[in-house]
Design a protein around this nucleic acid. Sequence first.
DNA 1: CGATTTATTGAATCGACTCAATTGATGTGG
DNA 2: CCACATCAATTGAGTCGATTCAATAAATCG
Lengths: 245, 245
Amino acid sequence: MSHLIRKLEHFVRLSPADRAVLYRVGSERVRNFGPRIDIAREGDKPKYVHLVLAGWACRYKQLEDGRRQIVAFFLPGDICDLNVFILREMDHSIGTITSVMIADLSREFFDEIAAGYPRIATALWWESLVNSAIQREWTMSLGQRTAFERMAHLLCEIFFRLRLAGLTREHGCDFPLTQADLADATGLSKVHVNRTLQELRSAGLIVLKDKFLIVPSLERLMSAALFNPNYLHTEHEGVQLDANE
Amino acid sequence: MSHLIRKLEHFVRLSPADRAVLYRVGSERVRNFGPRIDIAREGDKPKYVHLVLAGWACRYKQLEDGRRQIVAFFLPGDICDLNVFILREMDHSIGTITSVMIADLSREFFDEIAAGYPRIATALWWESLVNSAIQREWTMSLGQRTAFERMAHLLCEIFFRLRLAGLTREHGCDFPLTQADLADATGLSKVHVNRTLQELRSAGLIVLKDKFLIVPSLERLMSAALFNPNYLHTEHEGVQLDANE
DNA sequence: CGATTTATTGAATCGACTCAATTGATGTGG
DNA sequence: CCACATCAATTGAGTCGATTCAATAAATCG
């Protein structure tokens, strides 16, 4: 919960009442999943909006012949699909990377937000616009960036997003993804992911070991990735949207 | 206008009043642009939501060194970015392909919809969820599909979307994209786009000439593309959301 | 501890790219 | 309305980034 609040407050200033409502979300249905488990599958009827309270998950799609593409990562504080209720069936699956704690947000919860908590509603809109922007940036990465840039870009993005949620130290963060995960996300083969990570290491851009990532100089990693953080819409006038109560 | 209505009615049944409001949109500020013109640029402050009344446009991003990726096509009846008002600056540009007629939808218009036209509001949500799904599918294409499949997939998608808007004949549609456009959208080089199109031609999957595309067998093209139309969320129970007035 | 997953390395191959030149279409001004 | 200029499409040849296959080493787990 705190991760979501922390993230949203980069965009709007929430009132104590706003925060209280969001905390209450933690008391909606909460479920725990082990690592490498499907939470929802393509074809399922979407019932809830998922909020990740803890752990890492991903959204992925698969072709008939088994080729798999991770199309998004979900980090603590992330909301899966605002308003999917509307759709009849999922066009993708959601699976865990690590153990994950999920709160299932009901339609009623969103109705309540829409009716009485305009700042939260705005912040959730922002969340969903940023998610779209991230998806576009992935399109950009896959279409135009080299393997080296693409990997650097993904690492930058994850680091930035974790930081928003308050989940980084000065220069490092937990990093539970395997090279196979990175391959499915970047569209590269596992072998090439391995070699690309080695290149990043020997360029002194990252230290990645024991599921922990250290980024000695975010500046340099960003520049290697051609990473422009504007798409995360984080430097924001919206912070002026004060809670006036 | 009619293209938007036609598209939305694949999802909800609109009342005469609903349709009237949507038609009125045509009387909001309408602008005309020539081909190959930027309507909005990365860095701009977003002011309006754009509705494409006629012509083709695209959303694209560029890296500092000039590499360019088209991340979406806008066809008649498409709405650019629901609720971008919220964001401080554009993280991408919008440019025309052909001559284009655009209606600028104001914030007030959406407030009015939200307040008094729930079916339209739902349909617009659907529109925006489908756009997200399309973006994910592009990620999938770029990450996993071969050049041949990817090109076939893009052609399928465009054909399906045009059909929703009522812009196809039995087996064909206008197709104003150049091979350079296709290259920027698929992440392939122009040369390879050319060769890939020739492969599609000699496989008898498409006839593409004089800015007109013929798809002799959509079935066969879909199967070559590993195209699963579920992500367009078009076969929909939502049609049961009748207008009860 | 053995079993399985994850990471690493080498070698050969291939899909897609770049460079470069040509042909064909489109368009505009004199 | 032709001539020239520009833009779009096509073709060939050589190269390179990333892949596949295969084997080994290291880490993780029950």
